[in-house]
């Protein structure tokens, strides 16, 4: 049996095909780098105006009674505190509800119950936040907050926080549930085989093994809570400006709502000279906050992850 000698040209392949390969690669590369370019563009545009603001503003105006940009009072802590309060309230709602729902869906629910429950939760995740904002204003505030705290105002950070909590609960539930379902059945079998009951298996085996996904869901939810605008804008009041307070039963303005309330309704931002620039500064702060949150969570997840 003799083999035909092969020339290098025969193995070189079709140049047309190779060119096509290169083109496809280029298209995907452009898609990948576009998102990076957009991120850089955002930072640059934020940083420029933010620098204008911080270099021109009187530093004493950054630490005053409250956030009243139209009057030249830019108390940043007011916004940060309100954002913190509303995010904490939202997480207090979303962590138990979301993780509980996730554990039920992943471990306890019969396939039949799961079949209608999971889509329902996903529908809840799809409700526009403006609808939830309206609901927070017309239901949560009068029916829950004002019934418990009879003397509270119609616009409170508490009502807004509860509304944001409802908004992010489905996010926690679905992402955590996916993480828990991804834990291999063999680990559950090992646990049951050792005489563990369901509750122990969920707490000691499934939860630790899914922790990176669960923490990811919480960080995602927290980022969403910090970034949420509409519910806070509608239900927390204080649209014209806010006094610095830690009391959740007072109206308040978050960083997002502060930007929205100034940069809306006209082609010009009304108010004193630097009001326009101040928004960029707040925006940059918001950006840095979520960035920090993401990198912290990455580190936490890497430390506590149980890889299977």
């Amino acid at each position: 049996m003799t083999t035909q000698p092969i020339t290098a040209q025969e193995l070189a392949g079709d140049p047309k095909r190779r060119r096509k390969e290169t083109r496809v690669k280029a298209v995907f590369m452009v898609a990948g780098f576009t998102s990076i370019a957009i991120s850089i563009a955002i930072i640059v545009s934020l940083a420029g105006e933010a620098w204008n603001f911080i270099s021109q503003v009187e530093l004493s105006a950054l630490w005053t009674l409250g956030w009243f940009p139209r009057r030249g009072l830019y108390d940043i802590p007011t916004l940060v505190i309100a954002t913190t309060i509303i995010s904490i309230i939202a997480m207090i709602v979303a962590i138990p509800l979301g993780l509980g729902a996730a554990a039920y869906l992943a471990e306890y629910a019969t396939p039949r119950a799961r079949k209608w429950l999971k889509p329902t939760i996903e529908v809840l995740a799809g409700i526009p936040s403006v609808v939830l904002g309206f609901w927070a204003l017309t239901f949560i505030s009068p029916e829950i907050v004002q019934r418990i705290f009879t003397s509270s105002k119609p616009f409170t950070m508490l009502a807004a926080g509860l509304g944001v909590g409802v908004l992010i609960t489905p996010l926690v539930a679905t992402v955590s549930e996916d993480a828990m379902r991804a834990v291999p059945l063999s680990l559950r079998e090992a646990s049951y085989g050792l005489g563990a009951n369901k509750a122990t298996t969920v707490r000691k085996v499934v939860f630790p093994a899914a922790i990176s996904g669960i923490v990811a869901s919480l960080i995602l939810a927290l980022s969403r809570a910090i970034g949420e605008t509409m519910i806070v804008f509608m239900a927390a009041g204080a649209v014209g400006g806010a006094i610095r307070t830690w009391n959740p039963l007072e109206p308040g303005q978050t960083m997002t709502a502060a930007i929205a309330s100034l940069a809306t309704g006209s082609d010009q931002v009304a108010g004193e000279g630097l009001a326009f620039q101040s928004l960029f500064f707040v925006g940059l702060l918001l950006f840095l906050l979520t960035l920090a949150l993401n990198s912290i969570s990455n580190r936490v997840v890497r430390k506590y992850r149980e890889t299977y």
Binding site: P184, S186, L187, E189, A190, S191, G193, V205, P208, A209, E306, T307, Y308
Partner: peptide
Amino acid sequence: FQKPNPFP
């Protein structure tokens, strides 16, 4: 079990 399944 068939496949070693230690906990992580």
